[in-house]
């Protein structure tokens, strides 16, 4: 991760420098560098209180079982998303726990459980280094996190002098739920396309009777 950020830093700085030379904003650029470094410290100061407090709050909520309650609520929905795994009971508890931890913003708790879920899904797929449809759906759901309590965001808004830092809370709930649903839809739809493409490629590569055999073998 660190080298990706290094590349981002170099790319942004070089692009900014080149553009600033063309537009004659070079003196502002040097000032911005100094401002940026100190802004990061002010921002952290503004965030540290809120983030610390909410981290404690979430810790207590986890203790009294809010996370498990949430996992129970979302378990029925998971039956629609991972029908076969739910029947066999593969990784379902881990997936429910991962998603509920993510919903509460407990990133540190969510990732290890999510990795356990991935391991179970990978085992069910034969550990062959290729992502199965369910693994992809699970990861895509994670990249589109439903967040009930976007505390960093609220703290950032407050730090920027928003009159109503909480005003975005309900839009965030609606948007993240809808987006998660759409993400699952995309994952499923792309899986259909990918299977269709795979079959077409097989049909092109080999003679028709063989294709049918190999298809029966993979499914």
């Amino acid at each position: 991760m660190i080298h990706i950020l290094g590349k981002i830093f170099s790319i942004i700085s070089i692009i900014s420098l080149i553009f600033a030379i063309f537009t004659g904003n070079l003196s502002q650029l040097a000032g911005a560098m100094l401002d940026g470094a100190s802004k990061a410290v002010t921002l952290t100061l503004a965030l540290v209180g809120t983030m610390g407090f909410w981290s404690g709050v979430m810790c207590v909520l986890q203790d009294i079982g809010v996370c498990r309650l949430l996992a129970k609520v979302i378990a029925p929905i998971l039956k629609f998303i991972f029908p076969e795994n739910c029947k066999k009971g593969i990784a379902t508890d881990e997936i429910a726990a991962n998603i509920s931890a993510n919903m509460l913003g407990l990133g540190n708790a969510a990732t290890p459980i999510g990795i356990q879920a991935m391991k179970a899904l990978s085992k069910a797929n034969g550990d062959d280094g290729t992502a199965s449809d369910d693994m992809i759906t699970f990861v895509v759901m994670n990249t589109c996190a439903v967040s009930l309590m976007p505390t960093t965001l609220i703290a950032l808004r407050r730090a920027a002098g928003s009159a109503n830092p909480f005003s975005i809370l309900i839009p965030v709930w609606i948007c993240s739920v809808v987006c998660a649903a759409v993400a699952v839809f995309f994952a499923k739809a792309f899986a259909l396309f990918s299977h269709a493409g795979y079959k077409m490629k097989n049909a092109r590569d080999s003679a028709p009777p063989k294709t049918r055999e190999s298809k029966a073998g993979t499914e």
Partner: peptide, 13 residues
């Protein structure tokens, strides 16, 4: 990152 983001926004790009 804040340094590079500030530079980006100051460059006018």
């Amino acid at each position: 990152l804040m340094v590079s983001v500030s530079m980006l926004s100051a460059s006018g790009l």
